[in-house]
Structures are given as C-alpha cells and as structure tokens.
Design a protein around this nucleic acid. Structure first.
Length: 457
RNA sequence: UCCCCAGUAGCUCAGUUGGCAGAGCAGGUGACUGUUAAUCACCGGGUCGCAUGUUCGAGUCAUGCCUGGGGAGCCA
C-alpha cells in the first residue's frame, strides 16, 4: 500500500480499513480483548483486538507479542472518546514483521542515567526522547529559516583545522598525512570572517569539538554550533541580531511543539512566551554589581543556616566577585535570575576574552563582546561580539596572547584588503534545546552524546 | 586535573549491631469484553563492581583499584 497511512493521519480515514506499520509500544489484555499500543514515529494508536474479529491463532499471538515487535496491523479506524488520540484501530488482522530476538532492555518504568545512556540507541524510542529530538529538529530548522530569510549565505566551515582558532581551548589532535597534526575545529568563526568579506552576511552550522575535561551538565566534547558573521556591523547591530534570532527560534518552536513541550516534557511554556525583544542589556560592570549584591544577600541569609547541623565544615563563605573575574556558572544564574527573559551582558574585560575581540574605544580595558544568558539557570547560550578590524592592533593582540603569526597570516589578510567593521556570534544548539525543553542535562538534546567518559553507542 | 556520591536479580532499589540474598517492575504460565504504568494467582531469576585484609563468620568494616554519576575550572 502506497502511500502508507501513518498514525497522525488516521482522522482522515475514519470508518475505513487501513494498514498501519509500527512497533509494539505496550500491551494490555482483558479476557476476550487485547489492547496493543502501536507506535510509528508520528504517534501512538491503540489497536483493539477482539476475539471474535480475528483468527484464533492471531488472537493468541496478539497476547504474547513482546514490546518492540514490528507489526503490520490492518483494521478499521474508529472514533473513541476514551482514546487520548481520539481514534482506535478495530483490528481485523495483524502480521508480525519481526519478533525481537531478545527482550527489549527498556521497560516503561524508571531507569538510571548510566543505563539509559548505555542504551541510548534504544532510549530514543521513548516518547520523551522522541519529543526532544523533534524539538531539536525544529530548533535547527528555525535557525536556518532565520538566516536564510535575512539574506545570509550558509558557508560550511572546515572540520580539520591547522591550529587553534582561538588559541585557548584544548583541541582534539588527528594525524594528517605528511603535514603532521591537524585539529578538530572548535569554531568556524575565523573562516566566517573571511567569508563575510566575500558574501556580506554568512553563517556556518556544524559540529564543534572541545577536548577540555569538562564534566558538567552543560558540556559535551562534540556539539553543534551556528555562527553568523556580518560585514559592516558593530556590537549594537550584533546584539539586535542576537535577540531577534533567539526570540525567533524560541517562538517558532513554541508554535510548532507547544503540545509536546507541555504534555510530554512538562515545560512551563509561560517562561518561553516571554522571550521576545527587547532583551535587557547590561554591561559587565553592572553584572558584577548585580552578582556582588546577590552574594552579599546570600551570605547574610546563609550565615545562620551554615551554623546549623551541617555547618560543621567551617568553610569560609566564598569571596565576593571582583572586577576582572569571569562570570562562572553560579554567577550566570544570579544575573539571569534578575530578569524574566534572556539577558545580554556586554563589554567584558578584554583580558578574559579571545584575541580577536575589538577593544571598546571608550575604555580600552573592555572588549566589545556580548554573551546571552538564558533564564532559569541554563547559562550562556550565545557568545559573540565585534571583531578587531585594524591590522596593527590585531597583530599586537596576537603577540599579547603569544600566538604565532604564521598560522594567522590568512586571517590577517582579512584586515589587509579593505578591512571593515564586522561582528558575529555563536550559539550552542544543545544548550538552546536544553533550555527550551527544560532539561537538566545537555546529553539528552543530542541523539548520540559524546562526553569525556562516553563515546558509545 | 581536583572535590563529593554511588555500584546488590534484566531494570529501580531495600538489606537493621557483621549472622539463611529480599521487594517492586520486567519475563513465563493462567484468569478476566474497555485496559490507559490495568488487576489477580502461580513460576523462574544472584560472580552483592574487582582485589586484598580484619573476623569463627563480610553485601555490611578497612585499604587499593575499576566503572559510572554530580560539581569545579574552561567554555557554547
């Protein structure tokens, strides 16, 4: 039968006989009735097998099919108020496509994280993981739509690179023929800067690799990043682009998957509805004051609590944040908690940013960078800013960061031939998906997570 | 690299002062014409992560190792 009928289309076939193909999600039985939950990727439908409607062999078989048996089920589509879907299939016949060779490892009860990650290939079949992967797809589609509709050109950046893009992070090394070592990319940005001088508005969208030994809920060794870069754009334009981009992605996903977010992922979507421009913009200086105020308050309130039963450790309270300190995970949460939508923190101390950031003409201690912090403790989802466009200044920055000029000769060319102000940013897809779905850990946002302690399945 | 926690049935876990290895779910057999994580009865299921030590006796105590989880730093 072609085209085949899918579960999400059965309403159009009410009263008609159809054949559905899928996997047995679950099974219940009540004497002369068997209830089979059939999942086909578009939805799940209950197939009702009544003893009088099928052959005796089929009736017995239907009560002994293990979970994840693949099936072709033929029957009549019937409206039924008792069904969450609104429809059921009144079964006339069923054919086993393939019977599991052994028991499916994942039941419908609780499992531990370690076991689920080992069973990731099987775990993907669960309703919750399906919902997350659909949201991820919608996020990636919204990303493409946003830039495509604004006249950006997608320019694919290389995965193998000859050296560190930023000269800071730890990279994965790969042997590369007679040329020695290559490295897996940690950012396509430098290549996008060159491409922006050709095409004006560009973006790349691909995997990124970091060999840092980070073991936190926000880190993967392999993750996906979208990086736009625009010629003739300054920091203010960049920040406008960031907030329009983030709100477009969130609102598009909300429009397409509100039901799954609410019902399957139990997300409080009212928090997402607020993600519309303008986002609050605060300077790093202001962020430091917000953090210090919150830390003083926590210290005043925590003093009594620490003297309680668990206060035997005698740990001194953490020092107040100082100007020049980086904004870590806890500090990000303190800043984000002060607002009901993503907050943009700009003009960081230049010393803590990569060499390519342009200095603030009004205060050379500051870099024209901006991070977007997601609400609800999800932290930095975007980092970006205006790039240094002056050749001599950039060369001095390379020296200051003790980076070899040879590796960056091509990058310096971007400033040698008609240099212009330009800016861009990078957004991590997994952190964005985790935030939108309200997940505790980014490992569930990517089909097959790569982490420090895990490379299988 | 550092700090904290965990490892017992296929899965999730309990296991008292060191004294016979347990439950629920899953699986198997059966009952039930409306189940939504169905219910009920019966059945099978163990290298207590590994090693060494203490002890009459170790799942339990000690030391080391392995694996996993959480966090820090770094970052998206």
């Amino acid at each position: 039968m072609f085209p085949p009928v899918y579960v999400n289309e059965v309403a159009a076939h009410e009263g008609k006989e159809v054949t559905l193909h899928g996997w047995l999600h679950g099974r219940r039985s009540s004497g002369k009735l068997h209830f089979l939950q059939l999942r086909d990727g578009t939805g799940t439908i209950q197939c009702v097998v009544f003893k009088g409607n099928v052959s005796p062999e089929s009736f017995v078989e239907a009560d002994h099919l293990p979970q994840e048996t693949s099936l072709a089920v033929t029957g009549t589509v019937k409206k039924d108020a008792r069904s969450p879907l609104g429809f059921e299939l009144d079964v006339k016949g069923l054919r086993v496509v393939s019977r599991p060779a052994r028991e499916f490892p994942l039941g419908h009860k609780e499992h531990g994280v370690a076991f689920l990650m080992e069973q990731r290939h099987n775990w993907l079949r669960s309703p919750r993981q399906q919902a997350i992967l659909r949201v991820r797809h919608a996020v990636e589609q919204a990303i493409r739509d946003f830039f495509d509709r604004r006249g950006f050109t997608l320019v694919d950046a290389p995965i193998f690179t000859p050296s560190a893009c930023e000269g800071t992070s730890t990279l994965f090394e790969v042997p590369y023929f007679d040329l020695g070592k290559a490295y897996l990319t940690q950012s396509g940005q430098l290549y996008m800067e060159a491409a922006a001088m050709a095409l004006g508005k560009v973006y790349c969208f691909g995997p990124t690799f970091r060999a840092e030994k980070s073991k936190t809920r926000r880190h993967l060794t392999e993750f996906w990043m979208v990086e736009p870069e625009v010629a003739f754009m300054d920091l203010d334009g960049d920040m406008e682009l960031m907030e329009q981009f983030v709100s477009h992605v969130v609102q598009t996903v909300l429009a397409k998957h509100r039901d799954e977010l609410v019902r399957v992922l139990e997300r409080d979507v009212s928090r997402l509805e607020k993600v519309v421009p303008p986002f609050p913009r605060i300077t790093y200086d202001e962020a430091v004051e917000v953090i210090r105020a919150a830390q003083r308050k926590a210290r005043a309130q925590g003093g009594a609590a620490e003297a309680g039963p668990e206060g035997a450790g005698g740990q001194p309270p953490p020092a107040l944040m100082q100007w020049g300190d980086d904004i870590g995970g806890d500090e990000e949460t303190l800043v984000a908690a002060a607002y009901d939508r993503p907050v943009m923190v700009h003009r960081y101390p230049a010393a803590m940013k990569a060499f390519y950031f342009k200095k603030d003409p009004a205060d050379p201690r500051l870099a024209l960078g901006c991070d977007v912090l997601a609400p609800e403790g999800y932290g930095e989802i975007i980092g970006g800013g205006q790039r240094e466009d002056d050749l001599a200044t950039l060369e001095a920055a390379l020296d200051a960061h003790q980076l070899p000029h040879e590796a960056f000769e091509w990058y310096l060319d971007v400033r040698r031939y008609g240099s212009v102000p330009h800016a861009g940013f990078g957004m991590g897809v997994e952190r964005c998906v985790a935030w939108i779905c309200g997940l505790h850990h980014v490992r569930e946002t990517i089909p097959f997570a790569r982490m420090m302690e895990r490379i299988t399945p």
